[in-house]
Design a protein around this nucleic acid. Structure first.
Length: 118
DNA sequence: CCTATGACGCGTG
DNA sequence: CCACGCGCCATAG
């Protein structure tokens, strides 16, 4: 049965794929919108990934806080219940965040293309 | 139908 | 380092 009442079925599928990848992000790791888009074969549709995150509010098993932009900046923190939730949740997982910037980003970064498809 | 906007990314100057 | 522009595509007005 359909959980979402989305007009476009194809779009619904895209969202599902995004969520599937996000759910696979390991505890204490982060990835970027672009990396997810690229992994799904839509490298230039990173904006849609962000849109999918926006729609993932009601999905508790989708760790949207582990998705940041390519620089490791918490650009989406404003969309959480509080601007600090994203940073706090990352902090709890051992991801240091200073001034919206994920510290040691290169090391924390989790690339689905590289980590999954081996 | 058309324009503006965006939790993005990449190229240029 | 900063400012802009463009591509991408769904949504809102």
């Amino acid at each position: 049965m359909r959980i979402c009442t989305v007009k476009s079925a194809a779009n619904n599928d895209f969202f599902e794929q995004v969520y599937a990848v996000v759910r696979l992000i390991p505890h204490g790791r982060v990835t970027s919108y672009g990396a997810i888009a690229k992994y799904l074969g839509a490298a230039r549709s990173s904006r849609m990934v962000g849109w999918a995150m926006n729609a993932s509010h009601s999905l508790p098993d989708v760790p949207a806080h582990r998705v940041v932009n390519r620089q490791g900046l918490l650009t989406g923190k404003m969309h959480f219940s509080t601007p600090f939730e994203m940073q706090e949740r990352l902090k709890q997982e051992g991801v240091e965040v200073v001034n919206d910037q994920v510290q040691d980003f290169e090391h924390k970064f989790w690339d689905p293309q590289r980590e999954l498809e081996l």
